[in-house]
Nucleic acid binder design. Structure first.
Lengths: 128, 128
DNA sequence: AATAGATTACTACATTTGTAGTACTAAAAC
DNA sequence: GTTTTAGTACTACAAATGTAGTAATCTATT
C-alpha cells in the first residue's frame, strides 16, 4: 500500500480509531466534538477510507466493527521523514535544531532529552 | 491569515518559491521535474495561491514577480506543533523520543544533538 | 408484537483540487 | 517590421473531498 498524505478529515477519523483501537459506528461518531457532522457524512468518509485500505472492518451481524489498517507509528514516522527530507534537506541535525528552538523546550524537557540522547549514545557505543 | 494545511501541489510550489525567494513564471516552472505539468496548470495553481495569500507578486510590465507571503519557518513550525499536539498529546518529550528512535540517528548526529541540547540548557540556566 | 433507534447502502450535490486548452498580447528573437 | 515565444486571463472539465438526504432493515426498547 502506497502511503499518501491523509487529508484533514481522514486524519481526524484515524486519530479516533487509533485511540479506540477498534470501534462501531456509534463509538466513532461519539468521538467527534459538537456540533457533530451528520451520521451519514461520517459513514461516507469511513467507507471511502475502507476503499483506500486505511481502515478495515469485521462484519458483526448488520454492523461493522472498524479498525485501523494504517498504523499510527507507520504514518507519523513517514510524516516525520517526509518533513525532514523535504524541508531540512535530509538533515536530521538541522531538523533537531529547528525542533528544539521552535518548541521552546523547558529546562526539564531539555534535560530529559539530553538523558535520552546520552542513553542512545551509550547504546550505540555498546553495539560497536 | 489563518494557516491551514497546504496540499501537495501548493507545498511543492511553496518549496520552490522558498528556495528562489522570488521568481518569474519561467523560473518557477523550471523547478518542476520532467515531465512538467502544462504552463497553464502551474499558472492556475499559483493564481489560486495568490488568492489564498500564500503567494504575492510584484507586477513588472506584463509579467509578475512572485514571492512567498507564507514564511517557511512559520509553516513548518506550525506543522511541527500540530504534529506534537495531535499525535503526541502535546508532549514534546514523547515526540523527541519518537524522533530520535524513528530517524535512527548516527553516533555523530546524536553527539551533535547532545551538544546542542547541552548548549540550550546552559542558555536556560544563564537566563535564570 | 409494535415502535423507536441505529446502521448501512445508495444517492446526490457543492466545493476544492488537478489539469490544461484557447485567446490575446507583451516581450524576445530574427 | 515580422515572427516566435512567453505569460496572463479566462474558461472548462474530471476527480477528489465534504456534506448529508432517503430507503431499507437490523437491533434495541417498550
Amino acid at each position: 500500500m502506497e502511503l499518501k498524505q491523509l487529508n484533514k478529515s481522514e486524519l481526524q477519523i484515524m486519530e479516533y480509531l487509533w485511540k479506540l483501537e477498534k470501534g462501531f459506528m456509534k463509538e466513532i461518531v461519539s468521538q467527534f466534538p459538537e456540533p457533530k457532522p451528520a451520521y451519514t457524512t461520517i459513514s461516507t468518509l469511513i467507507t471511502r477510507m475502507c476503499a483506500k485500505d486505511y481502515v478495515g472492518f469485521e462484519k458483526l451481524g448488520r454492523d461493522k466493527h472498524y479498525y485501523p489498517i494504517l498504523k499510527k507509528n507507520t504514518y507519523f514516522s513517514s510524516q516525520l521523514k517526509s518533513m525532514i527530507s523535504h524541508f531540512f534537506n535530509d538533515s536530521t541535525t538541522q531538523f533537531a535544531s529547528f525542533f528544539t528552538k521552535e518548541t521552546d523546550l523547558t529546562l526539564d524537557e531539555l534535560e530529559a532529552l539530553q538523558k535520552m540522547v546520552g542513553q542512545q549514545i551509550k547504546d550505540k557505543n555498546t553495539v560497536k
